[in-house]
Design a protein around this nucleic acid. Structure first.
Lengths: 252, 252
DNA sequence: GTGAGTTGTTCTCAACCTGAGAGAGTGAGT
DNA sequence: ACTCACTCTCTCAGGTTGAGAACAACTCAC
């Protein structure tokens, strides 16, 4: 046991320790017009004035970490009620390098959110703008703090989660077609999938989707039959998983 | 943007906020005598005096989170140098429910460690004992704080990581046999595997293991040929993965 | 309306992977 | 010398995947 833990066990008062602040940040992803978008805030004040940053803020005394992330997301998107409840939110990881914020020691608990296509963030009392930005339009030089790294980790986690969970449905409306679901995978993974094989696979994984019995009102924009509509099934994990084509990649 | 973030951007002093302490805890796993063991500390002082707790303590001003976890692990195990460097350490997740510590708000950044069979923790200046305990011997009632939950998450993460990373080798000495590797999987997953199929699979996954050319000095304890020795390959991920037999389970 | 082209869905077939079992050969213990 | 446990390889049936094709339903342009 360390000297510090001894202090801790004795009911040590952390105000005498070097100050550490805990914030929650959110990597919020959505799909708009066939491209993966990320919710970002343009900073108005130094440090990193004019740079893009993840939405986030201090965790409140009475809320747990995920609740704080959901609150921050609600505040930035203007979302509430059922729409907010349908957003998938999970913890991504914590970032606490001593020099990640030049002002003081800040440990950020990053979260990852998957949302259906949402309206543009409401204009706030704030001067800083919040917008959905395509992830392809980002270079880490434009990003504040270590948020480029957090976003990279979030994107890799999102790509990975689509493999073995049904969370791709969280990017869609409650009822969707297999083609729309395939387009989520293609957008997040960044390459096209074989439509026939995808269709077979999705329907063969138990609990991934269930039929509504209904079909779309119209065929595709440029023709084709009406597609059957599905909703998310009750599976929490996909067995067997929908694996990405092999390629060299980084560990989670 | 929230009121709190405005404060943050203005260079707010967190000492005026309700105090939050940040600790690092470690779920350290090893395999001893064919059983999965966990490093635990018996608490001497309230709250939870006499209960088992994860090793951990305050994060220091100049260290990042993972370095803090490695330091705590070193302090509890007496490990250093090359032996310490061979331990796999990754972040597991952060736990920050407002009431998880009765004394004050504490956010704990939990880490997960895989270690080869290590000597018993050295007797410290401390009165509290540190010990490797079989995970099967635990009930959450004996555990301090939310450490039962953290341990559950760590065990599930360990089981999952063995599927798609070569980290099982981190439970073993630098040179090992396929049978020893299989026993790691059997111990962590909790059920026997088909020896022949496991052998075929391990050798077919590129970069999982590489041959040393050598063999063990003796056959098995009760006979059999000398086994070939392997060391860990350079793959960071297993393609294709070594999947657990299907069963209902929880999401990561 | 009609024709051209697009799309959703199903099918086929070869290649690959997995689970289960069997067997050859090695070496420790009695 | 014999037995038995053990490593390692092989076989075979069943399932899954990748690639391509077929076909009907549909939209749009004309």
């Amino acid at each position: 046991m360390t000297v510090n833990e001894q202090d801790f066990l004795a009911g040590y008062d952390p105000r005498d320790y070097p100050a550490v602040a805990v914030t929650v940040d959110v990597v919020a992803l959505t799909i708009r017009e066939g491209a993966l978008h990320l919710l970002l805030i343009r900073r108005g004040a130094p440090p990193f004035a004019g740079h893009w940053a993840l939405p986030g803020g201090f965790v409140q005394p009475d809320e747990n970490l995920t609740a704080g992330a959901r609150r921050e997301l609600a505040e930035e998107t203007g979302l509430g009620g059922e729409r907010l409840r349908r957003v998938h939110l999970e913890q991504l990881g914590s970032y606490g390098a001593p020099d990640r914020d030049p002002r003081m020691r800040v440990v950020s608990v990053a979260h990852l959110a998957f949302a259906p296509d949402l309206p543009d963030p409401v204009a706030d009392t704030d001067a800083d703008e919040a917008i959905w930005l395509p992830v392809t339009a980002l270079t880490s030089r434009q990003l504040a703090f270590d948020h480029g790294r957090i976003i990279d980790d979030g994107l890799e986690r999102a790509r990975s989660k689509l493999e073995y969970t049904p969370l791709a449905t969280r990017f869609l409306a409650p009822e969707f077609t297999i083609t729309e679901l395939r387009e989520v995978y293609e957008t997040v993974w960044g390459h096209p999938l074989h439509a026939g094989n995808f269709h077979r696979k999705v329907l063969s994984v138990p609990g991934f989707v269930e039929s509504t019995g209904a079909s779309t009102e119209r065929g595709g924009a440029r023709g084709g039959p009406r597609a059957k509509l599905y909703r998310a099934g009750d599976a929490r994990l996909l067995h067997p998983a929908l694996l990405r084509p092999a390629r060299e990649e980084t560990v989670r």
